[in-house]
Write a protein that binds this DNA or RNA. Sequence first.
RNA 1: GACCCUUUCAUCUAGUGGCCAAGGAUAUUACGUUUUCAACGUAAAAACAGAGGUUCAAAUCCUUUAGGGGUCGCCA
Length: 463
Amino acid sequence: MSTVTRFAPSPTGYLHIGGLRTALFSWLTAKHNNGKFLLRIEDTDMARNSEEAKDAILKAFEWVGMSHDGEVVYQSKRFDLYKTYIDQLLEEGKAYKCYMSKEELAALREEQMAKKERTRYDGRYRDFTGTPPEGIAPVIRIKAPQEGRISFVDGVKGEFSVDAKEVDDFVIARADGSPTYNFVVAIDDALMGLTDVIRGDDHLYNTPKQIVVYNALGFKIPNFYHVAMINNEQGKKLSKRDGATDVMEYKTMGYLPEALLNFLVRLGWSHGDQEIFSLEEMINLFDPNDINKSSSNYNLDKLLWLNAHYIKNTSNEKLAEMLKDFGVDIAGHDKLEMLLDATKERGKTLVELSNQINLILHAPKAYDEKAVKKAFKGDAKAILTDFIAMLQTWEKPLHLPSDCHAVMEKLVADKEIGFGKIGMPLRVSLLGSMTGAGMDEVMAILGVDETITRIERAVTTIE
RNA sequence: GACCCUUUCAUCUAGUGGCCAAGGAUAUUACGUUUUCAACGUAAAAACAGAGGUUCAAAUCCUUUAGGGGUCGCCA
């Protein structure tokens, strides 16, 4: 039987970084087995759903390049289907109408809390045959087993079992007739042919309930994998205050999808000492049975490192394309290769990279104050002036970084000075700051004319 | 409150009774390289939550305490 996995978000907000990891694990499991990865939108709660949220989730998937197989399934369009199963269970006596009011239920819970018990429905209408109370629209509850244990083997946690007494006759249809979560999830997972359900371990307790549904309907129970949550660096639940939780924010911040996926796959999963995984390697090596039991903390440092790695290893052509989103359009630039070669090791994100490039592309509007103090002193002015003269009279071509380097070398030799004497003032003249790309590269990219223009302008500011 | 899950360097992790006086990666620090900043290279520092057991031998098995997380809806 071929593997089928799924991701099933409810469209109430953006795609969360934790959700993306769970989705990644599911996606990898499907790809590893040449199976299918399905997407289902859990929109049974009409009040909280939004179209925008759904689109945002789909967009995030598109960005990271995790495509789903087949059509997206919307639970909101399947109410008729769920209804037939509710009727079936009612007819077979596996579910029943419960006329307990919300007030009565609340009172019962309070009573149980007071007695320090786990709260649960007491089954008072399970075998009810009398006359139903007036004015109460009943909910439908499923008959859960009353004794024994409900158990299953979780691919991550291992053997998991709860006392049947812990699982009450939960509601499968509300008073208005709409089906509830645990009911529809079980039905959809079964009908969509899921073989492996990978989800957050906040669903661990839902699983016994869903197993009740599987059994009542005679469905085959899939493998379950409950993945521990991602916490913040302090080990607390990840919230907006901890930085970006929306997947698309990472695009804005200049992260590459490969880096983000590589980062996420290593949260709760590993393969020996390996840190860098291409998509292909992940697919080949991933096995949901290897997922770690414990929750992991979210730490941006490693993501930044990975991102730098992927930027360095991305083709210049592709980088140029991506940089368009960051206000840098160099796709047609004749020195594109040189420009990116000179900068891509200096940018950990596309934002930083675009800053590096802009530094070269645009003549400095102002010179960094500290840099001026350090570089434009002593005989800096004279050296720069000599350098201009040298450039103007240079007879060989000055196209390559090595060509430009030769000029500096000559100057250093002639004047019997260190490289720093020319390097530092030159750097400030060309870029306005003490940091940044190598001078040889910058000069080659700018060309002789622009190089001279920038130096001349700088010289006039030195008194 | 009840029930469940979990616990190796600051962080992600390797580790399935002897190969572990615990390995890798990130971050940190130092040094090297460099005209600068990065990148890169070398090195340093850094952990088995605590307490009891079992065993010739325990990070690994058992008990227990503590920390963290989750669940207890006519939400998903």
